[in-house]
Design a binder for these strands. Structure first.
Lengths: 193, 193, 193, 193
DNA sequence: CGTTAAGCGAGACGGTACGTCGCGTCTTGCG
DNA sequence: CGCAAGACGCGACGTACCGTCTCGCTTAACG
């Protein structure tokens, strides 16, 4: 992902094996103990091949995480903005609750401050698109009169995701359904809904 | 900090030099490139001495960070809950905006998922006390009728801090004063104030 | 050389480019830093093509060296055995004194102990024929009465070439004309001439 | 050897284990298949430790070889120069005939052309001192009238050692006692003895 | 008021992983 | 089908830090 040099005759087998091995090792030993060396050995792939296609282990796991996330938390519009936000946040929370995705994502976040390439990739491939989707869903609710016209929608998204990130990085127990419902209700109320 | 063995004949010089060297290196190279080896060399201290008093580089930087944070963001009660929350969040945001504290804290957070000792220390020494203080301040406002009786105060704290952590770990530009004001207003409105 | 598989549709361009690139690299970086990879890149030839026609980089350079050596040190018979030996040894010494041939030959020698194929090729294509020629020339002198009948001619050849190899392998400065003359005189005297 | 940085608190155990492991591996797999990696593993020593004290595997084996050679081929003076030379050359030849010393020395020689440090070390520690000794023994014979006054003694040494090196690098079978005797006789006759 | 045990600097040590290089094999597509 | 291009599995390279371990030396506490 990030910056595939040519992709012309890349081995799909090697790619799949690498991503799977990375996730498996993340489950077994935790992100911090995953090494490129071990991924290569587990996947039956050479280190050179990994370095050819990914700049770091963070990039490998970001790709694996993204692949898994794509269809795990779709954005739907049932017409009920509160219900849809609950569904969406619950989906993200659920994904972060299970290995290897919770640890993997925490690990990726942990690299951001000393890996500009990874930070850029995360922003472009994961964060920005999803924020965009969330804002779009809120705007749709706004059009339907469920949210006042002048509401600060991006801030609302941060108020929704913020506590999720806060608890995830601080390793606090993940929110239950009821807390999520309360959170969504609070945010909507904060918007003046 | 964390677990000083005896402290009886501990060299204060070595302690100070270590913490300072750690912060300096964090400024110069970023948390990820700080190593115990480099801290020792910079501080003119032996690695053995560092390992005697701290279990990891994260612990060193947590102590340095805590020392610096203690008097940087006091909790005051002027009677105006909105103003007080703005002041408090602005203080935290300001601290996270400048090296070495922003990078240092991000680095510490990045270790939590594979360093239980550090996670515990952070929770006990930094996070819980400060959440406690914030909740206390909100309760005081509640007593004065500025916030409805049944409000979920801990969730409010998460809604305040959440976006700060969210932006910090994702390396988004830190909030300006106006955004902070809006955030505080939204949270208070969410509480029904 | 060594073992060309079929030669039916072999590209002469690729062969020449490979040998020339190998010699050039040998001059520029020294034998030890020549790699098949670099030869291929320099020659604009694929690695596969090199491996198709030569078993190792030593074999490539042996072929290049042999090609160059063929007409560089002819064996003549002027009737004066001392003069002819001087001419011959001086020719070999001169060739070993200049890049890329000196380094190339030293490099080839360095592979012999772990490359049986190359050792065999060197013996069959280079060493044995030349020793044969040298012995023949000595025998001719013997027939003319310049050397006693019972003399150990093969040992004489070794006493001639031995010091040349000795100095070449140990990287001692190559013999000058006078030393060569003395050497030849000593060897002839040793034979009882 | 070569250039020990400080030697202050060097582990003798690590040094011995390294040299022994290097020799053992040389016997088992041949010089070309000995790697620093394998020496370290075999010796129970870290690669760092090897690199701390030796610049290359050639240097390791040179030290091991030198240690072994020191007392294996002493230079004696029985008064009979021919006998002493025979003894001495036979000693060297014998040492080169058995693993790991033959292969080890061939391997060391093979590195000389692309390893200036090693070449220097070999010259200073091994070759020059031994040539010195040989010349000294010849000079002693000269003093006793066994060799004419004007004889070129250093050339004589090369004529003695030359064929040994010649056969060793070309992997020809090592000389037997009779050939050595003939060689010595020839060289002495060449000197005018 | 020594003595003595600690904390200390220095840095060697056995390890693990790094990211790179070159090997020799292979696959693909062009001429 | 030979060839260029170059991805691949493999394995060694030499380096960086890890956390542990002596070493002597200072230095403060207590006998």
């Amino acid at each position: 992902m990030i910056t595939p040099p040519s992709s012309l005759r890349r081995s799909e087998r090697a790619r799949r094996a690498t991503l799977q091995a990375a996730l498996d090792l993340c489950t077994e030993k935790g992100y911090g103990r995953v090494t490129i060396e071990a991924i290569a050995a587990r996947a039956g792939v050479s280190k050179k091949t990994i370095y050819r296609w990914w700049p770091s282990k963070g990039a490998v796991l970001l790709e694996a995480f993204t692949d898994a996330l794509v269809d795990a938390t779709p954005f739907v519009d049932t017409g009920d903005i509160a219900a849809d936000l609950r569904t969406h946040v619950a989906g993200a929370v659920a994904l972060l609750s299970v290995p290897p995705f919770g640890p993997a994502y925490a690990g990726i976040l942990s690299e951001l401050h000393h890996d500009d390439v990874l930070a850029r990739a995360l922003k472009d491939q994961l964060v920005d698109p999803r924020v965009e989707e969330a804002v779009a869903r809120l705007r749709s609710a706004q059009d339907q009169g469920q949210i006042p016209p002048g509401a600060n929608l991006p801030l609302a998204v941060e108020m929704l995701y913020g506590p999720v990130y806060y608890r995830h990085v601080l390793r606090k127990p993940v929110q239950d359904e009821e807390t999520i419902a309360t959170l969504v209700a609070h945010v909507l109320r904060a918007l003046g809904a």
